[in-house]
Write a protein that binds this DNA or RNA. Structure first.
Lengths: 186, 186
DNA sequence: ATGAAATGGAACAGTGTTGTATCATAAACA
DNA sequence: TGTTTATGATACAACACTGTTCCATTTCAT
């Protein structure tokens, strides 16, 4: 009961192509995606029964990557603020995945499973911020929902400067952390 | 040579409805927009010859609003940083317009006039930031392109918390300014 | 009140996308 | 090497949206 080598190759090519096309323009055609993957449109429909199924699989794939990358943070972080620093550092290379997930609400009407994992990420980030506030590592002047949004926005900005201005993921992560902690003044 | 009252009413209703629908989901149907405006689809096509024409008119409308709102800043600002504070304060109530303009690249293939004005705004913001850097009001540690993106991201975040969490425009502007200048630390 | 103009409904063709079915060909497996 | 299985090309129906035309009705202007 081993899956044919052609299937896994096609699946990977399709998910990769879909990631690239869909985060660029969310209403990319399945023909475009298949073509960009070097795969026939028929094969796409054979592996992913519908457009939603493809997007759903892609979203779950991206969420899985995020989970995998952020898992070790809990062990390594010296403090709550350090966890946020590591978060920028580890997630910034995955900005394509992150950017797609930011559009998932728009792409996927509402898939219960995807939405559930998405909310879980959100909640964990909020908990991290609240913890940092209690530890007096970050100011309580800004509300938690604002700070969650700020971090997400900094990821988005990091993706933007990487793709449009040739910054490296490390540079982007450092700028994001600086922006988050100190801002721009003085 | 006065335009009929019905025409201006329909135009305003259509632009308003288009603003609301398109910044929510960029591929909203013209039927949806017309219906949401309480106007027949035929009328929409009579006033705006094509989908692109409507989006183009809407983009120019939003750009005009932005210009009108930001014009007095040059006179009023006490310093470069104060100009940025006023920018947040004055533009934050227009986040719907701002949010649509952020998607204009995606909505409008590439209209030369719209793109030109858009670039002008971008350039002016970059010049303001560079000036603030020369005045030692903000740090040179973060690149200008990053800071331009940061400000745009803060506008986006401001729109988000207004619509999704019931914050007022004033609150959003203040949080944005705090985030920009000080960040979240301590 | 009357003429002029805008409106909205319906029906239409054109187009592009989704999703399905068929079949000859190519590649993987044993 | 032979068998099984995935592939891709083509053709197809269903559907939604765009953009146009026509016409009866409503609303504005004077």
């Amino acid at each position: 009961m081993v899956t044919d080598a052609r299937i896994v190759r096609s699946q990977e090519a399709l998910l990769s192509a879909a990631l690239e096309k869909l985060h660029h323009s969310p209403d990319a055609t399945l023909s475009e995606i298949a073509q960009h993957a070097g795969v026939g449109r028929t094969t796409l429909y054979r592996l992913f029964p519908s457009r939603d199924a493809l997007i759903r699989a892609l979203a779950l794939h991206c969420l899985g990557r995020m989970d995998a990358v952020t898992a070790p943070i809990t062990q390594q972080a010296q403090s709550a603020l350090d966890a946020i620093r590591l978060l920028f550092q580890y997630v910034m290379p995955l900005t394509r995945e992150f950017a797609l997930l930011m559009r998932v609400d728009q792409l996927l009407a509402d898939d219960p499973e995807v939405v559930a994992i998405h909310r879980k990420h959100h909640r964990e980030l909020a908990e991290l911020i609240d913890y940092a506030k209690r530890q007096k590592e970050i100011s309580a002047a800004l509300s938690t929902v604002w700070l969650v949004g700020l971090i997400e926005g900094l990821f988005h900005l990091g993706w933007s400067v990487q793709t449009e201005h040739g910054y490296s993921a490390e540079e982007a992560a450092e700028m994001a952390y600086t922006s988050f902690t100190q801002g721009a003044q003085r």
